[in-house]
Write a protein that binds this DNA or RNA. Structure first.
Lengths: 347, 347
DNA sequence: TGTTAGCACTCTTTTGTATTGAGTGCTAAT
DNA sequence: ATTAGCACTCAATACAAAAGAGTGCTAACA
C-alpha cells in the first residue's frame, strides 16, 4: 500500500528514461526497452511492477493493453520540474542567435521579427514574440498632419524607432501651421515620458487648465488625447507555423485547424503569453495545462524580455508536447536575454 | 472519327451539368446521375458514349474504372470560359460588402485588411489583397527625426494616410533643427508627386546641382535618396487561410503544408498576382494553370483595383478547384470595384 | 444512323476472419 | 524484493469474399 504511493529514486529514474526515450522515439515504451535502456539492471518484470505504480500515480498511461507506456501531462510536468538534465546551449546555435539579433540599423520591429524567425528556424517549431508593451515605451516624437477636412493623421514615435499612426476626426478644420505648432508643443513637453504617463498627464491637463492655457495648446492636448485614447491592443509576431504541420502528433487536420484558428484569433494566445509576464526565467505550459483546447497537444516554452530592467514582452516556442525540452529551455532562455540586450539603448 | 472531335451543343450541355453537379457534390459523376440531372432526355448508355468522347478530348477524367467522371483542368477551363451562367450577386452579400468597406475614419491599410477579411468571410475560402503599388502613390509628407548619433528615422506618408518609415545611417550627426529644415524643404517641394517621380527627381537633383544648391538642401535630398533607395517590396494581406483546411480535397497535410509555406514565402504568390495587374476584369487560374505546384489543387479568382483610374493592386479569392465559380466570380468583381471606390479620394 | 437495353467486366469499398506480435498482469519460484 | 513463466488482451496486418458502382461493348431498335 505505502509502496504504491511512494516515489522512490528508482521509480523516478525509470520515469526519466521513459520520458527521454519517448521524446526521442515517439512510440509507447514497453518494459523490455526500458529495461535495456536504463542504467538500472532490472528485469522487464520488475520494471512492469514499477510502471504499474507510475500509472497508478497518473504519471504514465497506456494507450491500450498491448502497447507500451506514454507520459501523461503530469508525467511530463514532473520530468521538466525535477528530472530534466538541461543541456548547455549548442555553440553554433548561440552564434547564429547572436549574429541574427545584433546586426545594426534595425528598428525594434525588425528585431522582434528576426527573433521570432530565429526561434522557429533554430527549433524547427513555431516561434512567437509579443510586441513590447506599448504603454511602457517612451514617447520620442509626436506629429499631426492634415489629411482632408477635419481628418488629421497622428504619428507618434516610441522607443527605438517604432512608428505608430492613427487617423482622428477633429471638431474643426486645422491649418497645416496650427498642426505644426501643436506637434511642436506636445513633442517638447512630453518627449521622454512613457506613453502611460503621457496619457495621464494629458487627461489631467484637459481637466484642470481648461481656462488658463491658450487655445492652441488645448487643441493639441485634445488631439493627443484622442490619439492615445484606447491603448493599442497587444500583438505578437508568430513564425514557422507550418513547421507544426510536420509533427505526426498534430497531423490531424481538425486539430491543426483549431490551432491555426487560435493563432489567428490572437486573443487566447495573448492571454496565455500574458501569464508569463510576471514570472521571470523560463516558464512552461504542457498540453492541457494551458487551458486552451487548441493547445491540448502542444507545449509552450516561454521567457520574458525587458528593456531598462522592466519586463515589456514575452517570447517563446510552441511545439508538440513531445519536444526536446532539455534543448528548448536553455534556447528560449538565452534568446530572451539576447533580445533584451538587443533592445536596450546602446551603452 | 469526326464525331469524336466535335464539340456539339449536346456534349457541352452535358459537360456543363457534369461540372455543376460535381462542384455541388464533390463526387465523381456517373452516367446514371447525369442522365437524371440533365434536362436532355437521354439514356445512361447514350450519355456514356458522350462521356467517352469528352474524356478523349481531355475535358473529363475517370479516377478508376468503376467511378464516375470528374472535370479535368481543361474541363473546368472550358466551363468557366464558355458555359458558366454567372449568378447575380446575392443582395445580402452586397450590402455586407458595402457597409464593410464604406465606413469612415479608416486609413487605406485598414480598408485593405477589411477587404481581405470580407473576401474570406463571405466566401468561406481564403481572401487576398495586395497592398497598393508603392511607387504609384503620391507623397504627402516626409519627415526626418533624430534617433541616436548618425541614425535618422525617416517617416513618409503616402496616399490616404499610409505611413512608411525607415531608419538610415548618415555621414555625420544632424541636429533636430537641421532635420526639421530638411523635412520642410522636401515636403514643400515634392508633395503631390508620385513616389517614383520623387525618386527620379531626387536622383537628378543630386547629380546636376551638386555645386549650386545650398548644403542643407543637398543633405536633405541625400537622405531622401537613401530612404527611397530600394523600393519597398510588394506585399499582400491574406485572410481565412484556415478556411482552406476544411476542404476535403486539400485535407492532405502534406499539400496543406506546401500551400501554407507558399503563403509565407510570399514570393510565388506575389508573382502570380502580378500577372493579373495588366488585365482588367476577373481573371482565373485553375489548378495547375498557376504554374505553382503548391496551388495544384486550388483555384484563384482575381480582379484588379485602381485609384485615380490607375491599377494599383489586385485582390482575389483562393479556394479548391472545385469552387462555386458562378458565385465567386461576380463576388470578386464587385469587391474589386467597391474597394476601388473606397480608396479613391472622396468627392 | 443515332439511341438504347442488356450484360460481362473492372475496380473500389466494405465486411469478415485469421494470424501475428507486442506487451501486460499475475503467480509461483528464487 | 526480484524474476521467470505463462495466459491473456488488443492493435495491426493480411487475406478473402461479397457488394456496389460504373463502364465499354454488342446487338437490337426506331
Amino acid at each position: 500500500m505505502s509502496k504504491s504511493q511512494e516515489l522512490n529514486e528508482r521509480s523516478l529514474c525509470l520515469l526519466k528514461t521513459l520520458v527521454e526515450r519517448y521524446i526521442a522515439d515517439g512510440q509507447p515504451i514497453g518494459s523490455r526497452v526500458l529495461s535495456k535502456d536504463s542504467e538500472l539492471k532490472l528485469s522487464p518484470a520488475t520494471i512492469r511492477n514499477v510502471m504499474a505504480d507510475l500509472e497508478d500515480m497518473g504519471l504514465i498511461h497506456s494507450p491500450h493493453t498491448s502497447a507500451g507506456r506514454v507520459p501523461t501531462v503530469t508525467g511530463y510536468r514532473m520530468f521538466v520540474d525535477s528530472l530534466l538534465t538541461v543541456k548547455p546551449l549548442d555553440q553554433q546555435l548561440l552564434t547564429q542567435l547572436n549574429t541574427g539579433l545584433t546586426s545594426q540599423t534595425q528598428d525594434s520591429g525588425e528585431v522582434i521579427g528576426k527573433a521570432s524567425r530565429l526561434l522557429s528556424d533554430l527549433t524547427q517549431m513555431a516561434g512567437v514574440v509579443t510586441l513590447p508593451r506599448h504603454e511602457a515605451t517612451q514617447l520620442h516624437h509626436i506629429e499631426f498632419l492634415p489629411m482632408s477636412n477635419t481628418r488629421v493623421l497622428v504619428i507618434y514615435v516610441t522607443g527605438e524607432g517604432q512608428v505608430h499612426n492613427k487617423i482622428i476626426n477633429t471638431d474643426r478644420e486645422f491649418s497645416a501651421a496650427e498642426l505644426q505648432q501643436a506637434s511642436n508643443y506636445l513633442t517638447s513637453v512630453y518627449t521622454g515620458q512613457s506613453l502611460a504617463a503621457v496619457r495621464e498627464a494629458v487627461l489631467t491637463e484637459l481637466d484642470q487648465e481648461r481656462q488658463q492655457v491658450n487655445q492652441a495648446m488645448l487643441d493639441a492636448v485634445n488631439m493627443a488625447q484622442q490619439a492615445l485614447d484606447q491603448p493599442e491592443k497587444e500583438d505578437y509576431v508568430l513564425s514557422g507555423q507550418t513547421n507544426l504541420m510536420g509533427f505526426s502528433e498534430l497531423s490531424n487536420v481538425e486539430h491543426l485547424k483549431q490551432l491555426f484558428d487560435a493563432f489567428n484569433q490572437k486573443r487566447g494566445v495573448i492571454h496565455l503569453l500574458d501569464k508569463c509576464h510576471s514570472t521571470d526565467g523560463v516558464q512552461i505550459f504542457i498540453g492541457e495545462e494551458s487551458g486552451y483546447q487548441a493547445f491540448d497537444h502542444c507545449s509552450l516554452v516561454t521567457s520574458s524580455y525587458s528593456v531598462n530592467d522592466e519586463v515589456v514582452g514575452v517570447l517563446g516556442v510552441i511545439g508538440p508536447t513531445r519536444m526536446a525540452y532539455e534543448k528548448v529551455i536553455p534556447f528560449v532562455d538565452v534568446t530572451a536575454k539576447l533580445l533584451s540586450a538587443a533592445l536596450n539603448p546602446k551603452g
